[in-house]
Design a protein around this nucleic acid. Structure first.
Length: 143
DNA sequence: GCTTTTTAGCCCG
DNA sequence: CGGGCTAAAAAGC
């Protein structure tokens, strides 16, 4: 298992990689290893606002429901947001269930849970709301 | 299985 | 703002 951290204005983002697959992304975590270079480059470009799509392979596990929610996040376009409610209606479930699934997202950024916000506020974020704000800002989305 | 707990929401005054 | 409501998933039994 390799991991590498990336410095941002909010703190470190740590990416774990194994055999060329990204397995996990965590916030506020620092480590001193190296991951596969083409993945690292994509992350860096994204954090600099120079890349919209992350195209690497990932491995993750979860319940069927969680996987359904996570993969549906990939359909949200770069720089756009959706509310918990809109997503729940689309998946025929409830807003709270969406939030519950998102908080266990093992691959934030790759599965862009930061693009899901509450109706009248930014909503929550597992690594700390400051990261959510920063990611949206990178995508040109003021909140 | 069924029951209880928990939830990154929502709505209404 | 604050409280009450809510459905649904996860955890516990």
């Amino acid at each position: 298992m390799n991991c590498q951290s990336f410095e941002t204005e909010c703190g470190y983002i740590c990416v774990y990689e194994k055999d060329g697959y990204v397995t996990r992304i965590e916030f506020n975590k620092r480590c001193n290893g190296k991951i596969k270079q083409d993945i690292a480059i994509q992350i860096e470009e994204y954090l600099q606002g120079k890349r919209e799509k992350l195209e690497f392979d990932v491995i993750f596990s979860g319940t069927e429901f969680q996987k359904k929610v996570w993969t549906s996040l990939k359909e949200i376009p770069y720089g756009q947001t959706v509310t918990y409610k809109q997503l729940s209606e689309k998946l025929k479930t409830s807003p709270r269930a969406i939030g519950q699934a998102l908080r266990t997202n093992p691959l934030p950024i790759y599965f862009p849970c930061h693009r899901v916000v509450a109706k009248n506020s930014i909503g929550g974020f597992n690594g700390g709301v400051q990261f959510k704000k920063m990611l949206l800002k990178i995508e040109g989305c003021e909140f």
